[in-house]
Design a protein around this nucleic acid. Structure first.
Lengths: 169, 169
DNA sequence: ATTATTTTGATAATGATTCTCAAGTTCAGG
DNA sequence: CCTGAACTTGAGAATCATTATCAAAATAAT
């Protein structure tokens, strides 16, 4: 129960942490939230920290389900909410689509989404950030957060073609 | 450039249009969408064009209901969708909250929302827009749209106080 | 171990939006 | 101004993501 089957899902940069060390790390995070350490929360946290960049609650549910027989959606949502309340994960809600979550230790970044194929590219731009601060200040606000989502058509020939032949939408 | 007749485009500024002229205007818009002119669509359009800046579907439903006895939610949503498909209105969906719509003839602008009292201030910033274009281009995208929403605390003493005494969120 | 608290998960509930389809309208042509 | 084909409507059901409920199970402190 303390051994984690190493998923071949490590795409890059394997951190040199023994399973035990990783567990301690995860537990520490959970305790920082003022919550009890449970198997479910460990599982969710492990997936969120290790996996691909953007998750939906559904993704996490499915990923955890592979290891842990039965986990409930409620638990996933509850814990993600707790994590994002303390800014361990960032919750991005857009359009009518399910919210996406991502581990937020990394640098802040915004998103550029291809409206044809759905590909998401991340970027960061300090100048834009600075201008945002200025705008807020000039309007008497203390800036606390922002959402910047760009939409466009990516460079793939397929998407370009679809875009150019689009009947005006 | 050329001289632009200043249109008093404020809601307080009464446009010198006879009801009949206004109706013709509305009908023209509906026909441009390739749709039939119906009482419901006229009503919705009138409200959207004349009213306050930001609407939810609920708002529009209620406003129209005052005049037109029974209108369905489906009709409101359907027509708003048609309008936003042709960019007559802009649909902004955020967070878990209902979508907001606004008549988009006016200049493009973004929003700065006070997270305490909910006040929404509009702004526009050409520099930010330009930088967005650059970012997209540098990533090989054709930029077609964007959402920029800033969040902060407005200058009212109440909101400032709440913010400063907040227990860390 | 024992117990006081938390947490969980199945399921119901919610809220916004969309779908379905029978009944009602619109509009072009006679 | 009739008629009918095509388009719209609205009421309610259906979806979808997310929350709430609550008895049963797990955790942590004694």
């Amino acid at each position: 129960m303390s051994d984690i089957p190493l998923l071949p899902n490590h795409q890059s940069g394997p951190k040199k942490l023994t399973p035990e060390q990783e567990n301690q790390q995860l537990k520490k995070i959970i305790r920082e939230l003022g919550l009890k350490v449970t198997q479910q929360r460990m599982d969710i946290l492990r997936i969120v920290k290790a996996g691909d960049r953007h998750f939906t609650a559904q993704d996490i549910f499915e990923a955890v389900s592979e290891t842990n027989t039965s986990i409930g959606f409620a638990t996933v949502y509850r814990f993600l909410k707790a994590l994002s309340a303390k800014a361990f994960v960032t919750e991005v809600r857009m359009g009518g689509m399910p919210a996406r979550y991502e581990w937020s230790s990394q640098e802040h970044h915004d998103h550029l989404t291809c409206t044809v194929c759905g590909k998401v590219v991340e970027f960061e731009n300090d100048e834009i950030e600075k201008l945002q601060e200025e705008v807020a200040k000039s309007l008497g606000f203390i800036l606390t957060d922002h959402i910047l989502e760009l939409f466009g058509v990516c460079s793939s020939t397929h998407c370009q073609k679809v875009y150019k032949s689009a009947p005006e939408s």
